[in-house]
Structures are given as structure tokens and as C-alpha cells.
Amino acid sequence: MHTIDAKGLACPQPVILAKKSVDSGETEFAVLVDNTTAVENLTRLAQNSGYQVSSIEENGIFTVAFSKDGSAVPASAPETSHAPETNGKWAVFAPSDSLGRGDSELGASLIKMFFYTLTQEKDVPDYILLMNAGVTLACNEEISGHLQTLAEMGSEILVCGTCLNYYGLKEEVKVGTVSNMYDIVSCMKKASKVTTL
């Protein structure tokens, strides 16, 4: 089995390396990484690409094993190569801590009320994608509470790790999964509707 050594590599390098193996059609390979964020990102890559995935840790080194039943490949290949998915999925993309442009204080109030309003409806977004100053929403006490409610109602919340790193907020995140550009773009592509705040 092919093993990719991605120890010591920063996000999103491990995912890029694994994606190469996925794209070249390898049915079985393993990736060695040294942090849990990489394990989570690789696990999502595996799930989104139709692989079985398992991970084991030994002395701080995680081995993430990808495997795919040969018969599953032809089943999914024709489907993905043609029409885009029209599954009715909805993504909300928040690239700022404000709703719309204009007065920032009003924008902060509006975005707070936007997420409150989402919690009051039954059909919550499938994905909530936080990027740039939007990542502060996952750290803000009041809005992270609304996001937590939405996560419990079924929304998948992805928080841009690059952005958290830039703003020095990695330890402040109260809700969601620390993620990367690949997963965020992939959610946008999976959704039939993307609402940008």
C-alpha cells in the first residue's frame, strides 16, 4: 500500500497530497500526519470522495488509511462526470462579520439577526461557510450561540483555518469545524444555492 508522509506539513498540504492519490484513482493508500486538524480534513476528503477511512494514532503520529472497494468506482464515476448535482442543498457563505456593506455597526446587528432568524426556521442551511472576518462569527459569544443551535439542527459549519490563523483566533473558536479552501469550495459546488452575506 502506498504511504504518503505528510508529517510536519501545514494545512492544506496533506489534503493536496492525498487528493493527488484520489484523482489518480488509487484504491488504497495511507497518509501520515501529526495533527488532528489534518486528520479531520483527510477524513472529510475520504468521505466526499467515496472512500472508507480509518485513522490510528501512535506516539503523536496519525495514520489515515483510505480504501475503496473496486466495485464502487464505476458506480460513482458516470454520475459525477456529467450533470451537476441538483440536490437542493443550501450554503450560506459569510466572508465578513457584517451583513452587506455600509455602516459596520448596523451590519453587525443585521448579521446577528440573520443567524437568529435562521434558528427560528425548520429548513436550516446545509452548509455555513465562514471566511475572512466571517470567522469571528464563530468566536462571538452571541452569534456562536446561534451557530451552535444551527449545528444541532443539522447545519455543517466550516470555519476557514487560514483566516483563524491570520486573525490569531484559533483558540477562540466556539463552534464549527476548522476547515480549508478545498472543503469550502467543495461545499459551494455541492450546493444548488449559495447565499453570500
Binding site: 455597526e105 448596523l106 446587528s109 446577528k112 439577526m113 437568529y116 432568524t117 452571541e142
Partner: peptide, 19 residues
């Protein structure tokens, strides 16, 4: 007035801004 009231009340009592 609504935004000023939130600033005043938020530290004192559990309130949530809503439409």
C-alpha cells in the same frame, strides 16, 4: 435607539437581538 439599548442592556441581562 434599538442598537443603543442593546449596548446598555447586554451587560446587565440575557437579551438577544432579533428582527
Amino acid at each position: 435607539d434599538a442598537m443603543a439599548a442593546e449596548k446598555l442592556l447586554k451587560p446587565l441581562l440575557p437579551i438577544t437581538m432579533m428582527p
